[in-house]
């Protein structure tokens, strides 16, 4: 059991008991190994089901705008990236800070389930962790692996593991990672020729089935009607045409420009293992370089593309 699990359960019980919040959004144990199921604890008994593990990679902030029936406050377990998306929600008028009771969770990174699955020819039957060691079993073999080597790629470059906004903390803050080159992956693509880039993204998106799990797992995507679903005008064709598929991915990325916290939920949710962060990462890099901006750090600031400053960079205008 992860050391955070018991703390979370106790904190949640306390929060619910004292009425600091009416519900607590967290994870419960999944039905299959390496799965965690987003779950809302409404009473102290429910709170016993809350867990924590390195597989809780989805972004719980995603569930906040959907909660309509709640008189009191909503409690939520928030790791670094979740908290940044909560900030974004507050900035974008999705929820009031006063409506929230945030249980901050200093995060040590989430694991890349698909990478781990590749170590096995058959299905994984058990997963557990002890500190930095992950113990993974299948019918045929057992592996003990170092968690740091199997972190999700966004967790590897994360510099905001600690929550940026919270009412109480699950544990002491953890040390933030110092990343030498935040955007090595983006630079690799930037160095390609136009043709190589085009082919790279062709290959990247070729298996997309347009289930929109990436969009739906993303806390930023809360529009009542998404542009892909609009019929008048129909911005994107609905078939499996590669240009339509790519258009969807481009536009989704644009809509996240300056707002994306690189939480990795999109990639985590993709059934086809498409590395969709390759789109948003570029915009994150640009936001940082052009506007010195990282999303979701300050509830008093709108993202750079929502505002105009006379000294905004304008080198692209010729």
């Amino acid at each position: 059991m992860h050391t955070y699990t018991e703390k979370i359960q106790n904190l949640a019980k306390d929060v619910l008991k004292q009425g600091k919040a009416e519900m607590v959004i967290g994870f419960k144990q999944g039905t299959i190994p390496m799965a965690a199921n987003p779950f809302v604890a409404k009473n102290e008994n429910d709170a016993d089901n809350l867990i924590w593990s390195s597989t809780c990679g989805l972004n719980l902030a995603n569930y906040l705008p959907g909660i309509k029936k709640c008189e009191g406050k909503i409690g939520i377990i928030a790791k670094g990236c979740d908290s940044r998306n909560i900030v974004t929600h507050i900035v974008e008028n999705k929820i009031d800070r006063e409506k929230l009771y945030i249980i901050g969770l200093p995060c040590t990174g989430m694991v890349d389930k698909k990478q781990i699955a590749l170590l096995f020819d058959d299905e994984i039957t058990q997963f557990s962790e002890e500190g930095n060691t992950l113990i993974v079993k299948s019918e045929t073999k057992e592996e003990k692996i170092n968690k740091q080597e199997y972190l999700r790629s966004n967790c590897k470059t994360c510099t905001h593991r600690n929550p940026v906004i919270y009412d109480e903390l699950v544990s002491d803050l953890v040390e933030e990672q110092i990343i030498e080159d935040q955007f090595a992956d983006v630079k690799k693509i930037e160095a390609m020729s136009s043709e190589e880039k085009w082919d790279f993204f062709d290959k990247l998106t070729e298996d997309c089935i347009r289930c929109y799990a990436c969009r739906n797992a993303c806390p930023l995507c809360y529009c009542p009607t998404c542009f892909v679903d609009e019929s008048g005008p129909q911005w994107v064709g609905k078939g499996q045409n590669t240009d339509d598929i790519k258009t969807f991915h481009y536009l989704r990325a644009y809509h996240c420009a300056g707002r994306c916290t690189d939480c990795g939920a999109c990639e985590e949710a993709c059934p086809m293992d498409i590395k969709v962060r390759n789109f948003t990462r570029k915009l994150n890099k640009d936001s940082l370089e052009l506007f010195n901006w990282e999303a979701g750090l300050d509830i008093s600031q709108r993202p750079p593309l929502d505002t105009y400053q006379p000294d905004d960079p304008d080198d692209f205008i010729m």
């Binding site: 987003p38 809302v40 995603n62 089935i209």
Partner: peptide
């Protein structure tokens, strides 16, 4: 309601 809480309404289950 409880079952549906965590659902993000992607179509993955139907497509696979």
């Amino acid at each position: 309601d409880d079952i549906a809480f965590s659902c993000i309404n992607c179509g993955t289950c139907t497509y696979v």
